[in-house]
Design a protein around this nucleic acid. Sequence first.
DNA 1: CAGCCATGATCGAGTTCCGTTCCGTCAGCA
DNA 2: TGCTGACGGAACGGAACTCGATCATGGCTG
Lengths: 218, 218
Amino acid sequence: MALIDLFGEDSVVQGRQVRTEPIQQRSAARLTALLDAAAEVVDEVGFDRITTAMVAERAGASIGTVYRYYPDRVAVLEGLRERAVLRFRQRVAESLKETQPKTWWEAVDCGVTAFVELYRAEPGFRILHFADRERAQSSVPDELATGFFAHQIAGVLTEEFGLAAGDDLIFRLEVAVEMADSLLSRAFTWNAQGDERFIAECRRIMHDYLAGFYGTDA
Amino acid sequence: MALIDLFGEDSVVQGRQVRTEPIQQRSAARLTALLDAAAEVVDEVGFDRITTAMVAERAGASIGTVYRYYPDRVAVLEGLRERAVLRFRQRVAESLKETQPKTWWEAVDCGVTAFVELYRAEPGFRILHFADRERAQSSVPDELATGFFAHQIAGVLTEEFGLAAGDDLIFRLEVAVEMADSLLSRAFTWNAQGDERFIAECRRIMHDYLAGFYGTDA
DNA sequence: CAGCCATGATCGAGTTCCGTTCCGTCAGCA
DNA sequence: TGCTGACGGAACGGAACTCGATCATGGCTG
């Protein structure tokens, strides 16, 4: 199994948050414009204060258009999150292709790098960490949860670097993903460029935590 | 410095989220009733769906009373968070007094235990982790952030167990607190009693991470 | 110690704002 | 040129929040 298959866009299940699939071409542009607008507004006023009117105005659309594509306010944020996840995975896929990692550690590191880069460059990317929590109380675990990432990564590590597959690996990776998400988000909490200390410590912890179980490198 | 001084209620700075300090006795009862109501409602309908009307009704008060004490809806949640932090610290203080830890590790473990117990028993306790994220975009680091905990814990570990004080210790602890918060919240995300696997792994990781820097135990 | 009353506390109808709907109109495609 | 997808924005419902009327408390006074 190629890395690109695990992290490429092919394997992303289309979300259910969109009301009407865009048929005409202009509507696809509308959709991205709406999400771009939502991303900006989220960064400016926060998750609580965002209003559908703000999103519509910023996107140069009317209220009705927002509701044409999304059933409600929360769905817009979920759409934003879904796109962020997609972009993250694409970025990881690119990073893997460029880096051609020789060890499992280098592969994991690609994930950290991709995360940091997107946090820096992508408006509204912080929604990734946020939505994690809010989701908890309502729904069933979905394929965007950390557990899903854990499975994806497990696939890569197993296929490419021969790590022993199994529940232990999955669990380890889920813990690792949770910690990394937490530390990297912390790095960006009060520093738009990301506090290098936390980023570096995150890399170190990931390495030590996974190495402690699967042997140092290789 | 006694442990109780670091974690007792004395050192808690009164929050600013309350509009009017209660003067008469009944209003103090009102305030706790409002927070109790908010805690229940949060657990039932989530952070998004909570309304001031729900809180008022559950507390047996009118809308106006809610707004007498809190400037807006979000402030109620912040008040709830502040109380949760307070209770966590009190619980840690109790736990330390009972346990009489002999090693730094036992002391840290008290923190984990307190967190787990409160998560299980205290309605709305999950707000601790939630609010962490939302807070980030608006305000300056406050004394309820993880950094504050790190300082508190550093004080205990330095005074009681002779660990070397300094920025390194503070940073380590901040990272540890962040990871613990993340893993423990994950333990409770889809399991009201807390997934024991994550709780145990959290303890192990805390121990290894801190021990790796300061030497095993003692 | 009873009663007074300044002031804290409460209430809830009313106002404003926001989420959401709905239908009339416009634009792309055949 | 008609048919269907896309769009706009007024209108509706409900939730956040205000405000002046009203009630309760507890210190003070005689």
